[in-house]
Structure formats: C-alpha cells, structure tokens
Design a protein around this nucleic acid. Structure first.
Length: 646
RNA sequence: GCCGAUGUAGCUCAGGGGUAGAGCGCUUCCUUGGUAAGGAAGAGGUCAGGGGUUCAAAUCCCCUCAUUGGCUCCA
C-alpha cells in the first residue's frame, strides 16, 4: 500500500497509509486525542476528520480548544438545529447558518407560521434527542445541476440563490440524519459529540443583510461538548448581565430616562454628573497641556451651515427636522456635530501659517435622530456630548498631529485601565465610492497618513473597508461592553473636505493662500458611551479619583455624630467627597449599604476613634484597614489617586 | 425603520375573567448598636395608555407608546 508523509505541527513526520484520515492520525498518537479531536487542518485548510488524505500533507489536529475546532463544532450544531427545526416544522426554508464568536445561528423562513420564542425549548429538546443518535455528517460532492435540482424540488429559493453564485465542481452537500444542506463544511464526525445545547434567542434578520430583502427569523444558539461548559457559559452570561451599565446606572443612581422627556435623551443624576465632570476635568487638563484651546458654540445652527458642510444633503432627511422662526421663515438645525461651528471660528479672522496647528476643543452636545430600534442605554442615544476638538493644520503637519492625538487617546485609555481595545482603521469601500465626498487623491493621501501614523506608534490595527466617514478615513478605538458588543469610543478622522467646503485658508510663508487640513478627534467619543463602557469595565467599582462618592463616614451611634460631622467637613476641605450616614441604624447595616453602593472608603467613627482623634478605615471589597489619623488617611487617599492618574 | 419578546408599588418580581400580592426601599415609633441586613407599625398601584369581547377585564383580542434581543443604520 502506498505510504504518505504526514508532517505534524511540531515538525515530526509520520508515515501513514494513503487514504488515512485525521481520525486515524489522532488514534495513532493517542486514544485520548482520538476522543477529543474534532477536525483536521490539512495544508492549512480545515477538513472533516473522516476525510481521507491521499497525498503527503502537513496536518494539524483540531480540538475544542482551537478556535477553528469550536467553529467547526458550532457550524455542525447549526446543522443539527436545522435538522431539528425541519423535523418539527416541515416545509420551512433555510438561509444561512454559520458559526459566530459565541455559538451559531441559522436564518429561517417559517413561511406563514409565526415562530414564537417560547418554542425554543421544544427545539432544544429535539436537538438533544437527535444528538443522541450520533448520526454521522456525510460529505457529498455534487454537480451544480444536481444541487439546483435538489433545492428546486424542495422549494428553497434561498439555497438556490446561493448555489447560482457557486462555480460548478466546488459544490458539496452535507447530510446529517434526514437533513441535507448545501455546505462547504467541514463538520464534526457525528452529532454525538454535542452534549449540551442552549438556544439563546430569536431575532429578525434581513436575507443577505439588506433591508430591501425579506426578513427571516434568526435563531441563535450555543453548544458544548460537556454539560459543565454550558453551565459555566450561562454563569458567565449572568455575571455579564450584572455589569450591564443600564442596571448599574439605575442601582448607583448615575442616570435615568423619562418617557416624558423623550426616548434616547439621558438625564444625568447628581452622582452620574459628578463622575462625568471628573472625567471632563481630567481630559481638559490633558488637553491644555497638549496645546488645545477651549471654545464654546451654541446648540443650534442655521440650516445653511449644514448645507455648506454637506451634512444636510447627506443626513437632512434622517435628522430632527429644522426649527423655524416665527416670521422670516429662517431654518435652524439642532447641531448634529460641532465641526461646522468650529470652521466658522477658524474663519473669524485671517490665519497665518505661524499659528497652525490651531486646536479648538469643546465638550459639545449634539443631537442625532437615531432610529427607534437602535437606542440602547447610554451607548446609543439621541442627545450626547462629544469630547470634540478640531485641529486645523498645514498639510505637512497632518501626520505629526495625528500621532500626537494617538498619544493623547492612549494616555486617556491607560489612565482608565482600558487595555482591551481594538484600533480599527476605517477606509473607503473601493467598490462604492459614491457614498463618499471629496476627490480620490485626497482620500488616498489621508488613508496613507493614517496608516503611517498608526504604524509609527506601533498600534496593532485591523482595517475595515467601507467603514470610513463620508468625508474621510478614520482611526477608531473599539471596546467591547459586558455582553461582548463592540462600541466605538475614541476616534481620529482626517478631513480634507470640510476645509474645502468652508473655503478655509491660511497665508503661508510664501505670502500665498493655502488650504488647511482638519483632524476631527474625540478620545472618549461621547461622554455617554464612555461612561457606559467604563461602568461595565469596572463593574461599577470606579477608580477612586472618579467615584461619585469617594468616602462614607459612618458613626457607630448618634453619640458620635458631632465627631463624625467634624471628620466629614475636614475631608471636604481636602476635596474629598462622599456621604455622612447618620441614620438610626447599626454599624453593620451602614457598612453593608456603603459596600452595596460601592463607595471606595468607609470611615467608621465611635468612642475609640473620637478619643484618639482617629478614623477606622475600611476599603470597599477589601475590609478593615485599621485606625489612623485623618492626616494619615488623606495621605493614603491622595497617594492612591496620584498612582492612578500620573 | 424591520422581526420577536416584555410592560403589575420607587426597585426586583409573583399572580391571573369575580374588590391587588411579596421582598427590598420609604415614613413613624422602639432600639444607641463596633466591620455586609435589629424590631414593630404605616403609607404607597385606574396592573403602560386607548379601544373591543363579556353580567364582569389587570387577566382574553386589537391598536398605540415605551423597554428589550437582534437586523438595517450610525456625521
């Protein structure tokens, strides 16, 4: 029999009979591996475990611990779910059913019947039942005609549409139990590996992601090779829900919404406002150091302003409607961004090249009409405040300025412990240039400069085509929230267009007029979104310098109220803020309440402390630190803040 | 905007065609207590809003609004 050489990841070479499968290789290594192996990566391509290997190859055996192993497992689970659904609801049609980061989904057309989310349990049960049959996933190569015939007979127009776009000779079907699906594969050997199933939710999803198409029913689920892992997954999900900023925002009294005020319009409560103000002051200080100059502009602007900027043409229909004056029929818009106002500040007098870069900063509140279904806590709202600034500079200064902004963003992120961000370079979609304004040469220059700046600062970046703003490319800092959703926080955008539209100029050393370049930037992005993500990151345990209430003074009984009051006002003179809990409650209760409110320091004062002129310090989440004088405490307190913000 | 779910006291939630329930919070009283819940009493709701079915609707049906999980969008 012909022998082939299998090269394993460690470089060792194994001789196997031709036609051996990934499974055979695993078994030749160890029984334990044979039980765990899910798929085989053959010459860089993931294959079914039972697919024969005919030639020499490098092979990596994939298990549940490999991301590709998980993806294969979940992909197969999507098929299992489809099989269960078809058994329960004959005649339904299938869109696509891929694996995702955490599990899988399948898009289904239920026809006239409505699929009720409460039926998920039934589907789950059916899946478990089918999994126990340990049906193999069988790969079949079919011709395009065979494929078309099969799905025309079945009446599934979605699969037909997909097949139409595939080249003949590269089409495969997979069969599991009674269910046959168009699929490139690969799959796990049999359904028996799927030991734990959880269907998570149902949602609508447009066929092929376009709102012009029919909306299908998407069912999300997740599966595991062990019951225990499902349990752990569900526990993690519960934990994440506890960190949700909407829940913590309510519990910690940071913000609220009112139907009467209007949806998506956040109301900052005193504690939330305190937190936000501390963040703003922190950035203002950093910006002054970095050469920014604060400006202030109104919340509305003439419609003409936005016609000039091009925003009206682009977003006019999707904005809040213009505000009109009683007599002259003038129209004003709520400002959806600050840049046009800042352009007019630039234009307030002639500019010399000597004063560039000019950096105008403003915590500017803007209003955007977000679609009803898009609103989400503080992360997606209709009125929000950007920590905005616009840098007007000479073309030769762009890269340097861009790098300075990257440094500022990283400084802010570091101070707040955001290490887990993703830097995303958003470029034009080269196939859909009509979506953007401005000429090609400028776009290409801007895109190049962003990439170079990111590279020079050693940023690990991912590049997304089609994610650019309509006026220019950008570098976004993306951070995930508690439930794993990605949000854009910091953003830096190069813009050659607005200076053009507003006819911005400066006089160069050559005494000629030149056009400046604009950089839009916001390290936080918006105060609302940033506070939301920050809350989830620290689970409401804000760093001391940001905590709305930093200390709670807790007298043991009302006998020590005078002393407690003295302590409390003394702390205020050191700019230390918090609460004095003089309720008629026992100390255990006061401590519990302060712990629940996540107040960093509790200062307990009773007979002993009063006599010694001290306070008993307790740290949130850590416990008793012992008694110390107020001076000692203030020092401890200030050291912690200095360490965090330097 | 589209598909699905949800809406009961300030909060978290139970109930369910026949006069509205719990825990926490709040108020008052008792208690003056040493590191995560002391005791008692009381106030508080047109069961999101509107319409319909019914002798009777918080409960069943329809519409609207809001929230929510996704999709689309995101200057």
């Amino acid at each position: 029999m012909k022998q082939i050489n299998i090269t394993l990841p460690d470089g060792s070479v194994k001789q196997m009979p031709a036609g051996s499968t990934g499974y055979d290789i695993a078994r030749s290594i160890s029984e334990g591996l044979a039980r765990k192996v899910i798929a085989a990566k053959v010459n860089g391509e993931v294959w079914d475990l039972m697919r024969p290997i005919g030639e020499d190859a490098t092979v990596q055996l994939l298990t549940w611990d490999d991301p590709e192993g998980k993806a294969t497992f979940w992909h197969s689970s999507a098929h299992l779910m489809a099989e269960a659904l078809e058994a329960l609801y004959p005649g339904i049609k299938f869109g696509i059913g891929p694996p995702i980061d955490q599990g899988f989904y399948y898009d289904i057309d239920f026809g006239d019947r409505e699929f009720d989310g409460h039926e998920l349990a039934k589907v789950e049960k059916k899946m478990q039942e089918l999994a126990q049959r340990k049906d193999p996933y069988i790969r079949k190569e079919v011709s395009k005609q065979e494929a078309l015939d099969y799905f025309s007979k079945k009446g599934d127009e979605y699969k037909l549409e997909l097949i139409e776009e595939l080249p003949d000779g590269e089409i495969t079907f997979y069969e599991v139990g009674d269910f046959v699906d168009l699929c490139r594969g690969p799959h796990i050997p049999n359904t028996g590996l799927i030991k734990a199933v959880k269907l998570l939710n149902v949602a609508g999803a447009y066929w092929r992601g376009s709102e012009r198409n029919k909306m299908l029913t998407r069912i999300y689920g997740i599966t595991f090779p062990k019951q225990k892992e499902l349990k752990e997954f569900l526990e993690r999900l519960e934990e994440a829900k506890k960190r949700d900023h909407r829940k913590l925002g309510k519990e910690l009294e940071l913000f609220t919404f009112s139907e009467k005020v209007g949806m998506g319009l956040p109301l900052w409560l005193p504690k939330g406002a305190m937190l936000r103000e501390r963040l703003e002051n922190f950035l203002k200080k950093a910006q002054v150091k970095a050469g920014y100059e604060p400006v202030i502009t109104p919340h509305i602007g003439s419609k003409e302003l936005y016609v000039t900027s091009g925003h009206y043409e682009k977003y006019g229909e999707d904005s809040f409607r213009p505000i009109t004056t009683p007599h002259e029929g003038e129209e004003f818009m709520l400002k959806p961004m600050n840049c046009p106002h800042h352009c007019e500040i630039y234009k307030s007098r002639p500019r010399s090249y000597k004063e560039l870069p000019l950096r105008l900063a403003e915590f500017g509140t803007v209003y955007r009409y977000e679609q009803h279904g898009e609103l989400h806590g503080l992360t997606r709202v209709r009125g929000f405040t950007q920590d905005d600034a616009h840098i007007f500079c000479r073309p030769d200064q762009v890269k340097d300025e861009f790098i300075k902004v990257i440094d500022l963003v990283l400084y802010v992120f570091n101070a707040l412990g955001f290490n887990d961000y993703e830097a995303q370079i958003s470029l034009r979609d080269p196939n859909d240039k009509d979506k953007y304004i401005g000429d090609d040469a400028l776009w290409e220059k801007a895109e190049r400069e962003i990439q170079e700046a990111a590279e020079e600062r050693g940023l690990q970046t991912v590049t997304e085509l089609g994610e650019a703003a309509f006026y220019g490319p950008k570098l976004d800092f993306m951070v995930r929230d508690a439930i794993g959703r990605k949000w854009q926080l910091g953003t830096i955008q190069v813009d050659y267009n607005l200076p053009e539209r507003f006819e911005l100029e400066y006089v160069g050393a050559d005494n000629q007029k030149h056009r400046p370049v604009m950089i839009h930037r916001a390290p936080f992005g918006s105060m609302e979104r940033f506070v939301a993500v920050l809350t989830e990151h620290c689970a409401g345990n804000f760093p001391l310098w940001l905590a709305p209430d930093q200390i709670a003074v807790l007298p043991i009984s009302e006998k020590y109220e005078d002393y407690a009051n003295r302590v409390f006002s003394e702390l205020k003179t050191h700019d230390i803020r918090g609460i004095l809990d003089n309720r008629d409650e026992k100390i255990g209760r006061k401590i519990r309440d302060a712990e629940v409110k996540k107040i960093p320091f509790m200062l307990i004062v009773g007979e002993k402390e009063q006599a010694a002129g001290k306070v008993a310090v307790r740290r949130h989440g850590k416990g008793d630190l012992g008694a110390m004088t107020l001076d000692e405490f203030v020092k401890l307190f200030n050291n912690e803040i200095a360490a965090a913000t330097e």
